[in-house]
Write a protein that binds this DNA or RNA. Structure first.
Length: 458
RNA sequence: GCCGAGAUGACCGAGCGGCUAGGUGAGUGGCUGCAGACCACUAUACUUGGGUUCAAAUCCCAAUCUCGGCUCCA
């Protein structure tokens, strides 16, 4: 039984989608005004695994993500760079897609741009005005939070206390009211019944989700920082417009990625982009790093943590390698220990799924993998594990890998020429070793080492 | 000020009433011409002070410290 921690209720709840085996999942996408950083990657990798696991459980998942391609930050940046805001947005959207592909985040079914849903946005605002949840002023259209008593239910806040820090604007009835439509005539702008301008930040998500998922759906995800005010505003908009609730059955939020215990931010200069990190570390190493902490916990980013992750991951690859080698050896196809190993595998699978069912506890799921590896290694060492058992082990590891987004069966690739060349060197060195010419063979090894080719004798 | 999260061995990180988490690093042994890699085994914990309980890292109370949110943010 899959349990998900719901931010709304602050409890783990059994997961039951609205429609038997269909899951409608929406995750807030990025505002495309700059390169995405590793904090974004953390969130999107987490939801990638969540989507994978839902699919693994037989759910048909429709995963929708919005792309915020019109907003103040984009316009500001475009102005600084003296380029067209739409072009700027497209450029960083493209980079975002490239980053996600590199990270193996590939389960999103549909990306929806805000700018391509302006009619839907206008329609939803109209509904809110018709139902008196929103009002028009000369600066825009605002949502009247006094008409929505549930405002604050997700973040568990007291609205009165919030007014202190809100943006003051004379035309607003209440400082906590937020913009649905901003009347502005700087690019880009659209026509609307209330004047030219652009949508407010929160309305695109509810317009987009209503269009593709309906006004009620299963899971809404995003970073912890979006709970207030963004998700709160979404609830207000959608539940007011539809007159029905709840908009979302399960709210899921990912914890922050910190650097030296502090939240990643530009002002602190601890901003690391996905691109930068992928220069030094393989995508799967970063993925392992992300999954070795529970998705709701804060995760502290550091080079040494990534190195540890790389070494850990290596342990898994090594066993796959060992299995591949033993498959070509003359160990027995099957033996009397097969039942023992079958049970071991059944248990491992059971434990793995148990942990995933427990609000996607990936760190624990990983520990199940390592326990299995230890037991299998012991069998290999003692020579009591058969080929068949080893093949089952490998298949199970691959199955786990697919859930978590690792491709354990793919070996790191090198180009053919290099591989041929290295093979020549290895052959020569083997001959030298046969003659016990240690001096020369060690020289070859150390020189190869200098160009990052590591030779390991068996 | 108001909300919230957390303090676990050298490091990362689960557990959240009884059962060795796991990984990295370290040590010992195995393998090896050597080195590395690999494999096995071993050691080292629950911020502090009270309390509840037959039993507490886990529950309660208090304290200390760290971080985050309340304004754009994954």
């Amino acid at each position: 039984m899959l349990k998900i921690f719901n931010t709304m209720t602050q409890k783990k709840e059994e997961f039951k989608p609205m429609h038997e085996n269909r899951v409608k999942l929406f995750v807030c996408g990025p505002t495309v005004y700059d390169n995405s950083h590793v904090g974004h990657a953390r969130t999107y990798i987490s939801f990638d695994v969540i989507a994978r696991y839902l699919k693994y459980n037989g759910f048909s998942v429709f995963y929708l993500q919005n792309i915020t391609d019109v907003d103040d930050k984009i316009i500001k940046r475009a102005l600084e760079l003296n380029i067209d805001p739409v072009k700027l947005a497209r450029k960083f959207e493209k980079k975002y897609m490239e980053d996600m592909k590199l990270l193996g985040v590939e389960n999103v079914n549909l990306y929806a741009r805000a700018t391509e849903h302006v009619p839907e946005i206008i329609q939803q605002i109209n509904t809110l005005i018709d139902k008196s949840f929103a009002y028009v002023t000369d600066s825009g259209v605002y949502f009247d939070i006094s008409k929505f008593p549930d405002f604050g239910k997700l973040s568990r806040r007291n609205i009165e206390e919030l007014t202190v820090h809100r943006i003051f604007n004379d035309s607003k009835r209440n400082p906590g009211d937020f913009a649905l439509w901003k009347i502005k005539n700087d690019e880009p702008f659209w026509n609307s019944p209330w004047g030219v301008g652009r949508p407010g930040w929160h309305i695109e998500d509810t317009a987009i989700t209503e269009e593709y998922l309906g006004y009620k759906y299963d899971i809404h995800g995003g970073g912890l920082d979006l709970i207030f005010p963004h998700h709160e505003a979404e609830i207000a908009q959608m539940e007011s417009a539809s007159g029905d609730k709840p908009m979302v059955r399960y709210w899921m939020h990912t914890g922050f990625l910190n650097v030296s215990g502090e939240k990643m931010s530009k002002s602190l200069g601890n901003f690391i982009t996905i691109r930068e990190i992928l220069l030094d570390y393989a995508p799967e190493v970063f993925r392992f790093f992300v999954l070795s902490t529970h998705y709701r916990s804060p995760i502290d980013f550091s080079e040494s943590a990534l190195q540890q992750s790389g070494n850990s991951l290596n342990r898994i690859y090594k066993l796959i390698e060992t299995i591949d080698e033993l498959r070509d050896s003359n160990i027995s196809e099957s033996n009397e220990n097969d039942i023992k190993y079958t049970n071991l595998l059944l248990n491992a699978k059971h434990d793995f799924l148990d942990n995933m069912n427990n609000d996607f506890n990936t760190p624990n799921a990983l520990s199940v993998i390592f326990n299995l590896i230890r037991d299998v290694n012991r069998g290999v060492d003692d020579g009591n594990i058969s080929k068949n058992s080893l093949i089952y082990v490998k298949n199970l590891l691959i199955e786990f890998g697919e859930i978590l987004g690792f491709e354990f069966y793919i070996k790191p690739c090198v180009d053919d020429k290099t591989e041929d060349l290295v093979e020549v060197m290895v052959d020569v060195r083997e001959k030298l070793r046969e003659r016990k010419d240690w001096e020369l063979s060690d020289l070859i090894r150390s020189r190869l080492r200098e160009i990052d080719i590591i030779l390991e004798d068996k």
